[in-house]
Write a protein that binds this DNA or RNA. Structure first.
Length: 823
RNA sequence: GCCCGGGUGGCGGAACUGGUAGACGCAGGGGGCUUAAACCCCCCAGCCCCUGCGGGGGCGUGUGGGUUCGAACCCCACCCCGGGCACCA
């Protein structure tokens, strides 16, 4: 008697075999067509959780199936190993973050191997590896040379909880820190920025050609937030329109220059630099008071009033000339105008902008419609289409024509010009943290900002530092690190003590994977050209904006700098974003304490069953609730496969000529090949697993039939099923293949369906009367319309339903359907 | 508020381009195996009604309309759930 299915034994055996034989190691000069599959490299958080399992199950399936289809598949693994949790742990325990991190890398590596996912481990990349830091810093210096990295004093988002600066992206809509939940405050600091805005247009335009989920593309477009309009100067005047001494002007941005005749006031942000110089003495006290409140108001307060904004503001005491009407209008400060967008000042057109309308109501300002609202419009501001009124020469024009005409006017008179604005801001990369890649810069009293020379890279953080919850990086308190000599003049200098945002590390790791051994450059052009762009990138939808945007920016910038291949405009040709794991409706997470540990299932049902369960539970892009996961059903299914393939189920195979039943099994086998091929291509893994289950159910009936199975037919069916299942359930299929055939199932060529075997002789034809199914007839699949109609009308059930009503019309769709329309 | 998704049995889901709604699995029911239980094997199974027990009929994909010979699928309005953005001029 054959021994039973023992997942623990065979999974350990095959995982060891793949590791020892370097089965999924691939060289850059591999002659097979190249294919690069990548799962977003994980933050090393310890043993894998269900989200990891799901991610790597999808990735591994692609690696293995692409390999069987004849590709050289690059499947690397790495770790996003810098970051706050390790440093916070260090502050708590005093353990060095490296020790903490490397322990967790080991744990996560082990659990990834335990689910049977295979990688070219030789190419391992970790962010904190000095070799990797060296090239991250090298890239920073190239950006600096190219003007893509710059330093400026800027109001930054400061999180009191994390004691560090946050990027705009890390501040939630309610003004709190995405990590600690503390309210974020504004502080002025010297910070390093990357000039991602230089690429705003390209980042926007190139989205169109990406094979990415539409929702991710939409999110990226919205984040970039391109808007077209005009920018122009307003001359500061007194109430009578007499220009102020000094000739001050306020520049405003608008997307609706066509409505300028309706500008009845203008607004500047409280932080606007002109506030200091243009406000007359008699308005100073009130204006200063307003500015003080506005500055102190944290984002939390500003956001807290939500829909019903109170439109706080103050009159500056001066006016600006509306160049369209040649009339002075009052200039206000208001907190609904942001210094960070456009010019920090707007022309206000209350009739066509609801926010301006609200403000005008509160402050008793006039409202002049310049667009005729549609008949019956009873709302307030009308921002839609309509003919222009009260607009001088633009009267009667439509929106597009009037915009062009208004810009024309501004440009002709030298007042302003057409202008495109973006919501996207430059990327603040400085972090006051220890556990990150140091910024390779030295400050010299004589030479100023000096780049650390390439041959002195990497700048590494010292190990002997104290981890304290202060506002400063431990690097700043380490004299040996802080004090250095200027590389240019040799005089005394201090190092930059900030480190880079960890998103910098993750913005180019996928390039390093192509050439991780390179010690002369981050990666060679040839290696990058050979593998990039990533053919299939897989990860969580939570990275839809930041990581993907930054990685796209890096790729474009590196290509333009000649570091990456010139033609490499995008890093990830195809992107797949998987759904989240929930438990009973809640997001599954450590903080909620509702984790289902993969280990328990690996110990009990095994990795193949767990992988299959993840694939079977539903569409990969959807969120899954672990309560709906049928691990038992998948384990049971694998048991059945085991018994079928080892001959434990049913009667022994016999030699005989092909019977009708044998032929049907052979056809079902070919249909399975076609179905699996199609489903894998469209990421429909749940239906693929269903097809395997259905097929094994057919085989079970087949081997139990009184005549027994035909040996050749059964062998073909089983071997084919093992080959097709090999990417999804790699261990059991490897073991069964070795027992049945010897050798390795994952080295077999991918099965091909015989088109002739996909044809069927007869099909079930549905007969409807008035659209309701009344009969089902077995008909030859070659039946024509006339025969189908004839058969359908001959059906007794149809006759019964027709009664005395003669058919008025017959719709035929041979061979599947006939619909009889009766009176 | 704006922009995306989505709503199908007790549950997860299937139905690919408008053509048999509910594949496959979980949970459930019946039978077999067993001294017994578990495992395993076979069968049933959307809801409601009728039945002479062969079967027959009606209803049914969030709600209400529409287009069509025919709608889970297309159109309009609405309700609910999830996600993104949010005083961006």
């Amino acid at each position: 008697m054959a021994d039973g299915y023992d997942p623990q034994a065979i999974e350990a055996k095959w995982q060891a075999w793949w590791a020892e034989h370097g089965t999924y190691e691939v060289d850059n000069d591999d002659p097979r067509p190249h294919w690069y599959t990548l799962c977003m490299y994980p933050y090393p958080s310890g043993a894998a959780h269900m989200g990891h399992v799901r991610n790597y199950t999808f990735g591994d399936l692609i690696v293995r199936s692409r390999t069987m289809k004849g590709y050289a598949v690059l499947s690397p693994m790495g770790f996003d190993s810098f970051g706050l949790p390790a440093e916070n742990a260090a502050i708590k325990t005093g353990r060095h973050p490296r020790e903490f991190t490397e322990e967790r890398i080991e744990q996560l590596s082990q659990s990834v191997m335990r689910i049977g996912a295979v990688y070219d481990w030789r190419r391992l990349v970790t962010s904190h590896d000095p070799a990797y830091q060296r090239w991250t810093q090298w890239i920073f210096l190239r950006f600096l040379e190219a003007g893509l990295a710059y330093r400026r004093n800027a109001p930054v988002n400061w999180c009191p909880g994390c004691q560090t600066v946050l990027a705009n992206e890390q501040v939630l809509a309610d003004g709190t820190c995405e990590r600690s939940g503390d309210p974020v405050v504004k502080r002025d600091l010297e910070q390093w920025f990357f000039k991602i805005t230089d690429y705003a247009d390209q980042l926007l335009d190139d989205i169109d050609d990406l094979d990415w989920p539409e929702r991710v593309k939409v999110m990226q477009r919205n984040w970039i937030g391109r808007s077209e309009g005009a920018e122009f100067d307003l001359v500061v005047t007194d109430a009578d329109g007499v220009p102020a001494p000094g000739g001050a002007q306020v520049r405003v941005f608008t997307t609706r220059p066509d409505t300028s005749f309706g500008m009845t006031y203008a607004v500047m942000a409280a932080e606007h630099p002109l506030v200091a110089s243009i406000v007359p003495a008699d308005r100073r006290v009130e204006v200063d008071a307003f500015v003080a409140t506005a500055r102190q108001a944290s984002d939390v307060e500003r956001m807290s009033s939500e829909g019903s904004l109170d439109k706080r503001g103050v009159f500056t005491g001066v006016y600006v000339m509306n160049p369209f009407t040649q009339a002075p209008v009052p200039l206000y400060l208001a907190d609904y105008v942001l210094m960070g967008y456009g010019t920090g000042a707007i022309m206000a057109v209350p009739a066509e902008d609801q926010r301006d309308w609200d403000f005008a109501q509160v402050h008793g300002l006039p409202i002049v419609r310049t667009i005729q609202p549609p008949d019956g419009w009873e709302g307030e501001a009308w921002s839609g289409e309509g003919a222009h009124i009260n607009s001088g020469w633009m009267d009667g024009m439509g929106k597009a024509e009037a915009i062009a005409s208004a810009i024309d006017f501004l440009e002709r008179d030298g007042l302003g010009e057409g202008k495109v604005n973006f919501r996207l801001r430059d990327w603040l990369v400085s972090r006051q943290r220890f556990w990150g890649c140091p910024i390779p810069i030295v400050y010299c009293d004589d030479c100023g900002i000096v780049a650390v020379p390439d041959d002195q890279l990497p700048v590494l953080a010292p190990d002997d530092v104290e981890f304290l919850p202060t506002g400063e990086s431990p690097l700043r308190r380490h004299p040996g690190f802080l004090h250095t000599t200027c590389p240019t003049c040799g005089g005394p200098a201090t190092r930059e003590t900030d480190t880079m945002d960890t998103f910098v590390d993750s913005s180019w790791y996928f390039l390093r994977f192509a050439d991780p051994w390179n010690s002369e450059e981050p990666f060679s052009l040839a290696a990058a050209s050979g593998w990039l762009p990533v053919d299939q990138y897989i990860g969580g939808v939570e990275h839809a904006i930041l990581h993907l945007m930054y990685a796209r920016f890096f790729t474009k910038a590196l290509a333009d700098l000649g570091v990456a291949p010139k033609e490499l405009r995008e890093p990830f040709a195809r992107l797949f974003t998987q759904g989240m794991i929930r438990l009973g409706g809640d997001k599954m997470s450590k903080s909620k304490g509702n984790l289902v540990a993969p280990e328990e299932i690996l110990d009990r049902e095994g990795a193949d069953a767990l992988r299959l369960a993840h694939l079977f539970v539903g569409p990969p892009q959807d969120d899954v609730d672990w309560e709906g996961v049928g691990i038992e059903g998948c384990a049971r299914f694998l048991q059945r496969v085991w018994r079928l393939a080892t001959g434990e189920a049913g009667r022994p195979p016999v030699e005989r000529d092909v019977t009708a039943d044998d032929l049907e099994i052979a056809r079902a086998t070919h249909r399975l090949i076609a179905k699996v091929d199609e489903d894998l291509e469209r990421w429909s893994y749940n239906t693929t697993v269903a097809a395997f289950m259905e097929f094994s159910n057919d085989l079970y009936r087949y081997v139990q039939a009184p005549d027994g199975p035909r040996a050749e037919t059964l062998a073909f069916a089983l071997d084919t099923m093992l080959e097709l299942m090999a990417p999804m359930a790699p261990h059991i299929t490897a073991e069964l293949w070795q027992r049945r055939r010897g050798g390795h199932v994952h080295e077999q060529p991918w099965p091909q369906a015989d088109p002739a075997m996909l044809l069927v002789d007869t099909v079930t034809m549905v007969v409807q009367v008035n659209g309701k199914v009344r009969d089902r007839l077995e008909v030859p699949s070659s039946i024509d319309a006339a025969e189908a109609e004839c058969l359908a009308l001959g059906s007794e059930k149809v006759q019964a339903h027709l009664g005395d009503n003669p058919p008025r019309k017959v719709i035929t769709r041979p061979p599947s359907l006939v619909n009889i329309v009766a009176g």
